[in-house]
Design a protein around this nucleic acid. Structure first.
Length: 471
RNA sequence: GCUCCUAUCGUCUAGAGGCCUAGGACGGAGCCCUCUCAAGGCUUAAACCCCGGUUCGAAUCCGGGUAGGAGCGCCA
């Protein structure tokens, strides 16, 4: 049987980093075995599900390049099917109506807690041979509960956590349909996974405790039980759980921070999974090598420093052409017109080894596309001195006479000038840098001037001279 | 409270009884290179939660602690 996995987020917020990793693992596992990957939107909670969240999830998945092999499934569009299965279970005696009110249930729970017991439904409406049920109260819309086995155990062979055994005694009769007839999560998941032929359920480990109940429902339905892989959660850098209030960011936030999607994926795949000592994987390698034997069962912290390092590795080695669109996006984002300066790929090539993110790259490249508005004070004080101005003044004249504005010619001109004056290159390059960049940081000076172009270079050199002398 | 899960450098991890004087990577420190910032090279500090047991031998297996975490909804 070919592998079918699914990623099933509920649209109550953006696609966060933990969800993205779960999606990645699901995607990778399916691809590894030539199977299919499905995106399913679990929107049965109509109160909290929003279209914005659905859009955010799609956007995040698209940016990461995690494509579903089928049309997205919405649970809200499958209510008829759930209803049908509920009826089927009622008919087969696997489910029953429960008329207990919420107040009644609450009271029951607090009582149990007071007795230091695990709160659970006590089965008061559960039909049993020889048991007489109270008459249904009038005007109450009953919920439907699943009749969980009373005896025995459920053995879950988790691909990540190993064998986990649950006693049916610990499980209560969960609600599968609400008073208003709508199905609940645990039930929809089961029906969907069954109908869609999901072979491997890969999800967060906050679902482990739901799994035995789901397995019991599956068995009652006579369905094949899929394999499970419960992935541990991702913690913040401080070890605390990630939440909206505490460091949880949407995947698209990482785009805004200057990450390349492939780099984020690479960082994520190594968070919990390993393949010996290898740190960097192409997407093909991830697909080829991913397996659950090497997925850690313990939670991992998100380390921004390492994520930046991975991103930098990608920036340094990627084909500049694939970085261009993202770089373009970042330049525009900071109000820079990418058309007002040198070719983006050429700039990427010069900047990438000194930038860990695209945000940094955009900021450091701004001088190539927009006029300088000020000099960095410290750098100017150090390099735009009277001596510096003399250097710039004389150099400008020489550069103006340059027949061809190439990096090689500029290299020769600047080095030759310094040698002729008996100056170290630093004495010449630094004043130039501050004059044309606005600060003492940029790619090699010949490359910097080449990218900047003749007009801008000469104008800025002279402006700097005027700045020093005029002030 | 009950059930379940987890536990190797600061962080991500390698490690499936001897290959471990515990390896790699990020980050840190130092040195080299150097027109700036980087990149690169080299060196270095840094960990098996604790206690028992099994075994000739345990980071690895078992038990018990301890510490974290998850779940216990007519939420997903």
């Amino acid at each position: 049987m070919s592998v079918v996995t699914r990623f099933a987020p509920s649209p109550t917020g953006f696609l966060h980093i933990g969800g993205a990793r779960t999606a990645l693992f699901s995607y990778l596992y399916a691809k590894r075995f030539g199977g299919k990957f499905l995106l399913r939107i679990e929107d049965t909670d109509r109160e909290r599900s929003t279209q914005e969240a659905v859009d955010a999830i799609f956007e995040g998945m698209a940016w990461l390049g995690l494509k579903s092999d089928f049309d997205e499934v919405y649970q809200t569009q499958r209510f008829d099917r759930y209803k049908e299965v509920v009826e089927q279970m009622m008919a087969a005696g696997h489910a029953y109506y429960c008329y207990a009110s919420k107040e009644e249930l609450d009271a029951m729970r607090t009582e149990q807690m007071a007795r230091k017991e695990k709160p659970r439904y006590d089965g008061r409406w559960r039909p049993e041979t020889g048991k007489t049920l109270p008459p249904p109260p009038a005007g109450v819309q009953p919920v439907v509960r699943f009749k969980n086995p009373l005896e025995g155990q459920v053995v879950l062979k988790d691909l990540i956590k190993g064998e986990i055994v649950f006693d049916n005694k610990e499980l209560d009769d969960l609600i599968i349909a609400r008073g208003d007839g709508t199905p609940t999560y645990n039930f929809c998941v089961v029906v969907d996974d069954w109908d869609m032929g999901i072979t491997h359920v890969i999800r967060g480990d906050d679902h482990v405790n739901n799994t035995p109940r789901q397995i019991n429902i599956l068995k009652a339905l006579g369905a094949q039980v899929p394999q499970y892989a419960h992935v541990s959660m991702i913690l913040g850098a401080d070890g605390a759980k990630l939440s909206k209030r505490h460091g949880a960011l949407g995947v698209t936030e990482y785009r805004a921070m200057g990450f390349l999607p492939e780099a984020l994926l690479n960082y994520l795949v190594r968070l919990g999974w390993s393949h010996g000592d290898q740190e960097l994987f192409t997407r093909e390698e991830m697909i080829e090598k991913f397996d659950f034997d090497h997925v850690s069962a313990s939670p991992a912290r998100f380390d921004m420093e390492k994520a930046y390092w991975v991103n930098h590795q990608y920036l340094k080695s990627a084909d500049p052409a694939v970085v261009v669109p993202e770089f373009d996006w970042h330049l525009r984002r900071i109000g820079v017109d990418p058309a007002a300066g040198p070719d983006l790929a050429a700039v990427i090539e010069q900047q990438r080894e000194r930038c860990r993110t695209l945000v940094e790259m955009a900021e450091k490249s701004r001088f190539l596309y927009a006029e300088l508005d000020a000099y960095n004070e410290k750098d100017a004080a150090k390099h735009l001195t009277a001596d510096g101005a003399t250097v710039l003044d004389e150099l400008a004249a020489q550069l103006e006479a340059l027949p061809a504005w190439t990096a090689a010619a500029l290299h020769e001109a600047v080095n030759g000038f310094a040698a002729g004056k008996g100056l170290g290159l630093g004495k010449v390059a630094q004043p130039i840098r501050v004059a044309v960049v606005g600060m003492a940081i940029s790619p090699p000076i010949d490359q910097t001037l080449f990218l900047l172009g003749r007009e801008r270079t000469l104008a800025r050199l002279r402006a700097a001279v005027a700045h020093v002398r005029g002030a």
